[in-house]
């Protein structure tokens, strides 16, 4: 890939390109009009299933609920052959150990939210400590939140240093950086935050916590994917993408897959490089898979509640 020193030098969050919002929306509306049928649809549904970060982030979560979710992650719908396990289970740090034990040997990863999720309103010492603790408990992936207040106040160095410090605290665990795009107001800010997070060491950039509306949207994801693409052209490094929150239908999930394929290419169509942060999406994907196989529209009554 092109790696000339000029483009590396010029690629900085300090000169992120401006985003043409109308252009982005037009591009998105074209990407959502593709027709995917039959075998291609079935393959795409299964691919989406394998890219799920099955998530439960509620204050009322219990070890029992997390165990149940882990079982679902490993065995989404046993009565149909050939449905893959999901990519990861995403929980609060105090439930990481339970998830890790339940998922032992299955290949399903454990992701933990950290750094005073969802607000990020704490000091750096506490955030780093929480990150180290979650990794120690067994988390394979850490989902951190950026300090949106500092970002919006223009203190980019502060946000950059914080991400770099958390990355350091992660050790071998993968770092996903949540931009919380619903609080960033403009697509220009989304682009700048994406560039900043990648340069500070993010392995993944993620749209939202799921606690703020709007959460993931197609236009925001397109802007982030373009940032990932430009970063890859400039440095040769691949960064993953995770839209989270509000993706609850298969139709929408397939539109995201089309967008990845058309923006960053085939290489990203893999759970190592793309994830859906969702919970309700799992059952909708399962219902559509069974519909494709039986020809009969399904009811949620016949699928496990997670």
């Amino acid at each position: 890939m092109m790696k000339d020193s000029h483009s590396v030098m010029s690629y900085s969050y300090l000169n992120s390109p401006a985003i043409d919002q109308v252009g982005v929306e037009e591009r998105v509306s074209r990407l959502t009009k593709r027709s995917i049928k039959k075998e291609s649809k079935l393959a795409a549904l299964k691919l989406a299933m394998s890219m799920l970060d099955l998530t439960t982030l509620e204050a009322r979560d219990t070890p029992g609920k997390v165990r149940q979710l882990c079982i679902k992650a490993m065995h989404p719908h046993e009565s149909v052959i050939g449905i893959p396990a999901v990519a990861a289970v995403c929980v609060y740090p105090n439930l990481v150990r339970v998830a890790k034990e339940t998922l032992q040997g299955s290949g399903v990863k454990v992701a933990a939210v950290a750094t005073a999720f969802p607000s990020g309103m704490s000091n750096r010492k506490v955030k780093l400590e929480e990150t180290r603790w979650a990794v120690n408990e067994g988390a394979d992936e850490i989902d951190m939140v950026i300090s949106r207040g500092r970002f919006l106040a223009g203190e980019y160095d502060f946000v950059f240093d914080e991400i770099a410090a958390v990355k350091d605290a992660c050790g071998t665990a993968h770092l996903k950086v949540i931009l919380e795009t619903g609080e960033l107001s403009t697509l220009d800010n989304v682009r700048k935050a994406s560039d900043l997070a990648m340069q500070a060491g993010a392995d993944f950039i993620k749209t939202s916590t799921g606690k703020i509306q709007p959460a993931a949207t197609l236009p925001v994801t397109l802007v982030m994917l373009e940032a990932i693409r430009d970063y890859y052209y400039a440095t040769g490094k691949m960064v993953g993408m995770k839209p989270a929150g509000g993706i609850s239908t298969s139709k929408l999930a397939l539109q995201y897959l089309v967008m990845i394929r058309e923006t960053v290419g085939q290489a990203w169509l893999h759970p190592d490089w793309f994830r859906f942060g969702a919970s309700a999406l799992a059952n909708d994907l399962l219902m559509q898979i069974v519909k494709e196989q039986t020809g009969v529209y399904q009811s949620i009554d016949y699928f496990s509640k997670d």
Binding site: V296, Y297, Q298, S299, I300, D301, Y302
Partner: peptide
Amino acid sequence: SYFSNHMD
């Protein structure tokens, strides 16, 4: 047929 076979 869809009226009668829809599971929901």
